[in-house]
């Protein structure tokens, strides 16, 4: 994310999102009633004699809309902002509906009543664009899963199977193993990343590393090897929970959120310094007991929740908006989408 211009007296910030994570941030901070200005395309109909249906030509223009709704489409990598036109060229009627589509590297200006956590999020997004890109390979001798770590989510790229077996001949096994390692290495070479974490149980990860050292020396320096206890998605979760990602990715958003949720679950299990659900959180807020408020991003558009966020910030508590795109975020959603870590116990 880049900030192109800030006009504080008008509450306007002009931004350029650079990747999917940035779009995700936009999706979360744009609310109903905000004003968005951007270059966009719109069909303009000629108002003359309409004998044949004429859909009109598409024209590029600079429009301003008042937001009614925001949609996020991960597949086409676009944020769709729906609203009514409040500013535009003379031949476009004000008040008619329009949808602005934002994809990476599009510029847009947002005029709104900025909240503290929204500014924080933009700052974080700017920071994160400077961070290295990371791939994670979770593997053992049978199977390897490759993941791309993004700021707010983790995407599974592919899963590769080895087909080796203890009952096969030694030579065949070695060949299959090589084929398997080549296949993984090929996928890794396709991605332009700064770091690759190879993690897994057993010895396969080390022998893979040795293989890379001799066969793909250009990948060697990017690779970090770590031990974990399981493969597949559960192995990936272990990588995140244990903070292994943080060591190579500075502060990963997913890891930070996951660790906060883990802390929350631990406290809940002990009946300790934690509350969850709107009613309990409100009560804890009356005691000024909330140290960190965790809010699922699926809830931030809700007015009641907004009030809770504001009150928490006034009382000096931290607010963390947790993405619902990763496993820990889903767990928070299951607990009502809002929870708090407390400074001191309340009854």
């Amino acid at each position: 994310m880049k900030i192109i211009e800030e006009i504080p007296q008008k509450n306007i910030i002009k931004l350029m999102p650079e990747n999917l994570d940035d779009l995700w941030v936009l999706y979360n901070i744009i609310e109903e009633g905000d004003k968005i200005f951007a270059v966009t395309e719109r069909r303009v109909q000629d108002k003359g004699d309409v004998i044949r249906a004429d859909r009109g030509a598409k024209r590029k223009m600079f429009l301003g809309i008042e937001v009614k709704n925001v949609e996020f489409d991960e597949n086409t990598k676009r944020v769709r902002i729906l609203g009514t036109i409040i500013h535009g060229p003379d031949d476009v009627p004000l008040g008619s509906h329009h949808t602005i589509e934002i994809k990476p590297f599009d510029e847009l200006s947002i005029e709104k009543n900025w909240k503290k956590w929204q500014i924080e999020r933009i700052k974080e997004a700017i920071e994160s664009s400077k961070r290295p890109k990371v791939l994670v390979v979770v593997m053992d001798d049978e199977e390897a899963d490759i993941f791309e770590v993004r700021d707010y989510s983790i995407k599974e790229i592919c899963s590769i199977k080895s087909h080796t077996s203890k009952k096969l001949d030694y030579k065949i096994n070695e060949e299959l193993k090589k084929e398997y390692y080549h296949e993984i290495a090929k996928v890794l070479s396709e991605y332009d990343v700064d770091n690759i974490l190879v993690a897994g149980p057993g010895f396969a990860k080390n022998s893979f590393y040795n293989f890379i050292s001799s066969q793909y020396p250009e990948l060697k320096n990017k690779i970090v090897v770590e031990s974990i206890s399981t493969t597949s998605r559960a192995g990936l979760n272990e990588v995140i929970k244990r903070g292994i990602i943080n060591r190579i990715y500075a502060e990963s958003r997913v890891a930070k959120e996951t660790q906060l949720i883990e802390k929350l679950l631990e406290e809940i299990a002990k009946k300790g310094l934690a509350v969850y659900g709107i009613d309990e959180v409100k009560k804890a807020l009356e005691y000024s007991a909330i140290d960190t408020l965790l809010v699922s991003d699926s809830l931030v558009r809700n007015h009641e929740i907004e009030k809770i966020i504001d009150t928490t910030e006034e009382m000096g508590g931290k607010v963390v908006i947790v993405s619902s795109e990763h496993d820990a975020g889903k767990q928070l959603k299951a607990l009502g989408g809002i929870a708090g870590l407390l400074r001191f116990p309340i009854e």
Partner: peptide, 13 residues
């Protein structure tokens, strides 16, 4: 045995 708590959304093997 579980170090924390199991909720909806938890995905073990």
């Amino acid at each position: 045995q579980h170090p924390t708590a199991i909720t909806v959304g938890y995905t073990p093997v």
